[in-house]
Design a protein around this nucleic acid. Structure first.
Length: 479
RNA sequence: CGAGGUGUGGCUAAGUUUGGUAUAGCGCUGCGUUCGGGACGCAGAGGUCGCAGGUUCAAAUCCUGUCACCUCGACCA
């Protein structure tokens, strides 16, 4: 066998065809299976377990900020959806409708929720009467349906899993504070748990949520330099409250409208994990989110005592609180290595007759394939250190990638040149006019990703129209 | 929704031009030998050729219709 033979041949190399690489990873890591319905994917155990861990960790962080979980119906009567004009216009092209129940045609058709603002608003209009009823800080974990024309696993599917938080507050200040607070919960979660660095900022009016007063976003850069909007937090002001009549009596016995927020993160974030950390051998999961953190692989396990020792090691890892698995199948070791790698399991431990004789085992990191020989008795502790380093190194590499592909442009020709020829984002000044956004999109296919909180002054003039600039904007091609 | 492309065992394909027994590799099952980077031998299982009509003695192959999926645009988390 040739020495330079690729270890994993099922995965198309990234630089050959990134889109195909992505699909190969998703399929070969057994995250999903296509279903018979266009745009609807089946989440297999490897994929769903990642989502379960995301849920567990995010839900814990939500609850630390006072969030309570609820569950709303999946159907929305058409009349309810129609109540807020911008909202219905934004979502109408992609809602699925139920027109019949059993054999009876419905008097009013029901939409399958594309998002649940209207239901929460309807609820709040009924249960909020006094300032004493505020704030309401509700969240639900559910799936929503959006009839998409072009779909890709995780990134854009007709039905997807997410959480949607919906809050109602007495004052505009409190609503703005909650909006930013939740954006930061998402950002911290991505940084600390998913090892994904981000750009945080505000969406332009063109890109903001239908019906929102302001939308804030976290934008991540994928390996191919494209942007993925990874989580959003919206401040609705009192627009929905006015449309739905959500009023309360304040301390002065004055009738006031509530101020609302909503915020969501979806299974799309799994697409970000894949495209930020993956490599040509497959998926690479950050240790803190990985359903299985280490795979114990016995070598020559038919030999006396090997399997027993491997089981012993596996037990000690589990006992130390690590999420471990033992691969005692009758596949060859090489096959098991590749399998562990394509599934993105952050580490494996090889243990064979030679190791057992020497009282040691071999820890191999997924991201760098670096091997560390450690005494069996210290395996759990050393593995914990290695996983922590791996988590940090993954973040550092992604941070380096993000910032080394972030360019600045102060004239339109160089702006267009960078967008056309270099993967990544460009920061450039903008006049605030939607016409310039549209022109830039037409000329380059790039869109405004966000107006970052940390502003820099690159020039005084809009990159596109040369009128006085209002803000610096990150621009990029997006998923 | 526009423009292209593809549908043949679980997967990847050959066969379609010129109609004539349904093919290969991988995967799967059983037994045995192996085991430090996708091992090997032997024996097996598995396909109404996307679907519906039509032409023909005979259709994966020709004709008509239809559906699904993929890629690129437009639209969107």
């Amino acid at each position: 066998m040739a020495k330079d033979k690729k270890l994993v041949e099922q995965v198309t190399p990234m630089n050959e065809d990134f889109a195909k690489w992505y699909t190969d990873v998703v399929k070969n890591a057994e995250l999903i299976e296509y279903s018979g319905i266009k745009g609807c994917m089946i989440l297999r155990p490897n994929g769903y377990a990642i989502w379960e861990n995301i849920q567990k960790e995010l839900d814990r962080r939500f609850k630390e900020t006072g969030v309570e979980n609820v569950y709303m119906p999946m159907f929305i009567p058409e009349s309810l959806l129609q109540r807020e004009k911008d909202h219905v216009e934004g979502f109408a092209p992609e809602v699925a409708w139920v027109t019949q129940g059993g054999n009876e045609e419905l008097a009013e058709r029901l939409c399958v929720r594309p998002t649940s603002e209207t239901l929460f608003c309807d609820l709040y209009s009924n249960i909020v009467q006094s300032y004493r009823d505020l704030p309401k800080v509700y969240n639900q974990w559910c799936s929503v349906v959006r009839w998409e024309k072009t779909t890709r696993p995780f990134l854009r599917t007709a039905e997807f899993l997410w959480q949607e938080g919906h809050t109602a507050h007495a004052t505009a200040e409190e609503a703005e504070e909650r909006t930013i607070q939740m954006l930061n919960v998402y950002a911290d979660f991505c940084n600390e748990v998913l090892a994904i660095p981000l750009l945080k900022g505000k969406k332009t009016d063109k890109e903001k949520f239908a019906g929102a007063h302001a939308t804030y976003t976290i934008e991540a850069m994928m390996h191919d330099g494209k942007a993925l909007q990874s989580g959003t937090s919206h401040n609705f002001g009192d627009g929905f409250a006015k449309a739905f009549g959500i009023q309360y009596l304040d301390k002065n016995n004055k009738l006031s409208y509530v101020h609302q927020t909503s915020w969501g993160m979806s299974t799309r974030i799994i697409g970000a994990i894949i495209m930020v950390h993956g490599d040509d051998s497959g998926l690479v999961l950050p240790p803190r989110i990985a359903p299985t953190q280490v795979m114990v692989i016995p070598i020559a396990m038919q030999k006396e005592g090997v399997l027993d020792k491997a089981k012993e090691l596996y037990d000690s890892l589990c006992g130390a609180g690590l999420r471990a698995k033992l691969d005692a199948s009758d596949k060859s070791p090489g096959w098991k290595f590749s399998e562990q790698e394509i599934r993105g399991i952050p580490a494996r431990i090889e243990i064979g007759p030679k190791d057992i004789e020497a009282g040691q085992c071999v820890i191999v990191r997924r991201d760098t394939r670096e091997k560390t020989v450690v005494p069996i008795s210290e395996a759990a502790e050393r593995l914990k250190e290695i996983l922590e380093n791996e988590q940090q190194d993954m973040y550092d590499r992604a941070y380096e990638h993000l910032h080394s592909n972030l360019y600045a442009a102060d004239d339109y020709e160089s702006f267009k040149d960078i967008i056309a020829n270099k993967p990544g984002f460009v920061k450039a000044m903008w006049c605030g006019d939607e016409a310039c956004e549209l022109k830039i999109k037409e000329d380059t296919t790039a869109t405004s990703r966000c107006i970052p909180f940390e502003q820099e002054k690159i020039s005084d003039r809009c990159i596109c129209c040369n009128k006085p600039a209002k803000a610096m904007v990150y621009w990029g091609k997006a998923y």
